[in-house]
């Protein structure tokens, strides 16, 4: 027993030395159980978010108003699914199968980004989701490219490339709507009014209320804190909104100075955390709808997966 403990202490020291030296942790490396657990939770949550996130955008595929808009939306949703695939693969390197992750999602044991529990109600929502939701996601994911777990970090590098295209196409939709008719402008403002706060909530609770932040930062899974990332996003996004004539739905917004790059920094109202926790805990407008959709599609596809597997087994016997 004593020997094992000493052994573990030695392994932990090696692990921490790698983290300090910015050497990536790989699937076969020893890692503390809590590190593995944290990654299993975080990467699978990230994978589920990509996949569930296909639904609100999917709500507008059949009504996309031009050939170009439809192509872009289809391609974007396909990218999100592809990100889900990379992330499930990264998560599987931690010794848990995709089937198991999906089962945990269906049982409510695994979560996905709460923002996807809000509905996509008009065409400008497709713009707002790309611009604000993907924009918030990128702010977080850019920092995750340097995360300490190798497979997760490499997945993030690929994902970030595509996400920046998503953000631009979202902003382009908003820009076009603001150049358009009064109805289009009304839709665009309505969309930012509804998506602004959920997008800010995506960064998670204040650091002081985020129980898992300290270990995750120590192990360099997380490279920047929730509040810091949120500020970055706000500073970047407000000028973009103003440029095309949109108003952020926060009357308390004011410039409080410039950062080192000379960019404005803003003060803003606090987030409605009661709403945040309520949606996280299942009481958002679409929580039930999103999960039920995923469960239904998965159940309806059971015979197809069984068919493919049976056919594969039979072909091996031949």
């Amino acid at each position: 027993m004593k020997e094992t403990l000493e052994n573990t202490a030695e392994l932990l020291k090696e692990f921490e030395a790698k983290i300090d030296a910015e050497i990536k942790i790989e699937p076969r490396d020893w890692m503390p159980e809590d590190y593995r657990k944290h990654l299993i939770r975080q990467i699978s949550q990230h994978a589920h978010s990509e996949v569930i996130g296909m639904q609100p955008e999917g709500n507008w595929i059949s009504r996309a108003p031009s050939l170009r808009a439809k192509k872009i939306l289809l391609a974007k949703i396909q990218d999100e699914g592809g990100h889900g695939l990379y992330l499930y693969s990264a998560a599987e390197t931690l010794g848990v199968s995709r089937d198991q992750y999906i089962q945990w999602l269906h049982e409510g044991k695994a979560k996905y980004a709460s923002v996807f529990n809000y509905p996509a109600l008009n065409w400008a929502d497709i713009g707002a989701i790309g611009w604000l939701v993907d924009g918030a996601a990128i702010t977080n994911q850019v920092s995750l490219q340097r995360t300490s777990y190798g497979p997760y970090s490499r997945a993030m590098v690929r994902i970030c490339k595509e996400e920046s295209f998503h953000q631009r196409q979202g902003y382009e939709i908003m820009w076009k709507m603001m150049q358009g008719t009064e109805d289009q402008q009304r839709m665009a403002q309505d969309a930012i009014d509804r998506w602004w706060w959920p997008a800010l909530m995506m960064f998670g609770p204040h650091d002081s209320d985020s129980p898992r932040t300290s270990n995750a930062v120590k192990w360099k899974i997380k490279r920047e804190t929730n509040d810091r990332l949120r500020e970055k996003f706000i500073n970047k996004t407000i000028p973009q909104a103003e440029l095309i004539g949109l108003k952020v739905p926060d009357s308390a917004i004011k410039i409080i100075g410039q950062d080192a790059m000379g960019e404005n920094m803003y003060e803003h109202s606090d987030i409605n955390w009661d709403e945040f926790w309520s949606v996280v805990n299942g009481n958002g407008p679409c929580n039930e709808q999103r999960l039920n959709h995923h469960i239904r599609a998965h159940e309806e596809g059971a015979w197809v997966r069984e068919c493919a597997l049976t056919y594969y087994e039979k072909s091996k016997e031949k």
Binding site: V51, G81, G84, Y88, E300, G301, V304
Partner: peptide
């Protein structure tokens, strides 16, 4: 979209 029997086929 989002109705495939598994993710790869959905895509």
């Amino acid at each position: 979209s989002s109705n495939g029997p598994f993710l790869e086929e959905d895509l």
